[in-house]
Design a binder for these strands. Structure first.
Length: 255
DNA sequence: GACTGCCTTACTGGAGTGAC
DNA sequence: GTCACTCCAGTAAGGCAGTC
């Protein structure tokens, strides 16, 4: 099933917990994007459901409980380590510390410590969200008032937005001249995250926004630029520049 | 006494940085 | 480009205090 991180990033906390978004037309599943139109009746396993019932049923049958789905996400997406994911899964299953410690292979005191750290993380996350929201409001006002223009435009589907996106024109120029030749071919794929983002952004200029490409078409373009084109293709997916279908045959350029 | 929350300390590995 | 160094996050464990 295709992961729909773009929709998740745009959802509120409440919507993420529920697993769906509601709009005028109906409900859409946050995890896979499937839509259920209000006023339409859906037949599922011989039973009839309205749109709300259908989306609830769909989430339960296809994604399980929200907590299970979120805990199945990649550690870099959800922001907690594998051990923490493991501990949270066992906690959500109602296991006590002794059992968790035994199953994970750590001491009871370590489980307690993780529990404490996770609570701290929760508090920090709340404050961080409030801070970022205030900052967003403040900076959007500032950008409207001045011509700053030095920060890299972040594509909406970027899987993680942090200081790596704080890219100046000088950074971009320097990285491109270092890693690409005058024909736009890539000499070497950078190791550093910030430089990768610059190079991938430059590569994306060869693709049209919102257009779908067959895998062969993507390969053809990337192959012209770099011999190890599968690495580029993977990176473009990983960094959220492309999304692809489950069978990996169709690639769509994200906005 | 058992359990839990909070805090501290120690160790480790990865990432970043500066000197050469 | 390489190497040494620093910093930081994650992990693990234990101690102390409060609650039941």
């Amino acid at each position: 099933m295709q992961e729909n991180h773009e929709v998740m990033w745009k959802s509120s906390l409440e919507e993420l917990v529920e697993g769906y978004k509601e709009n005028k037309e109906g409900y859409s599943c946050i995890f896979c994007g499937e839509n259920f139109v209000k006023g339409r009746i859906y037949q599922i396993d011989g039973e009839l459901y309205d749109a709300y019932g259908a989306v609830s049923n769909h989430i339960a049958n296809n994604h399980g409980e929200t907590v299970d789905y979120l805990l199945s996400l990649n550690t870099s997406v959800i922001g907690i380590s594998e051990v923490q994911q493991q501990i949270l899964k066992l906690m959500s299953a109602g296991k006590d510390d002794k059992v968790i410690a035994k199953e994970v292979g750590i001491a009871c005191s370590t489980v307690r410590n993780h529990r404490f750290k996770l609570r701290e993380k929760e508090k920090q996350a709340k404050l961080f969200l409030a801070l970022m929201k205030s900052l967003e409001e403040k900076t959007s006002r500032a950008i409207n008032q001045t011509d700053i223009g030095i920060i890299e435009e972040i594509h909406t589907s970027a899987t993680m937005v942090d200081d790596r996106y704080n890219i100046t024109d000088q950074d971009r120029e320097k990285t491109i001249s270092t890693y690409m030749d005058e024909n736009g071919a890539l000499k070497q794929f950078p190791v550093k995250e910030k430089k990768k983002i610059i190079i991938l952004g430059e590569i994306m200029k060869n693709f049209v926004r919102n257009r779908e490409y067959k895998e062969e078409e993507v390969n053809k373009v990337l192959k012209r630029m770099y011999d190890d084109y599968p690495t580029l293709r993977r990176a473009l997916i990983e960094y959220g520049f492309f999304e692809r279908t489950n069978d990996c045959k169709i690639y769509r350029v994200k906005e």
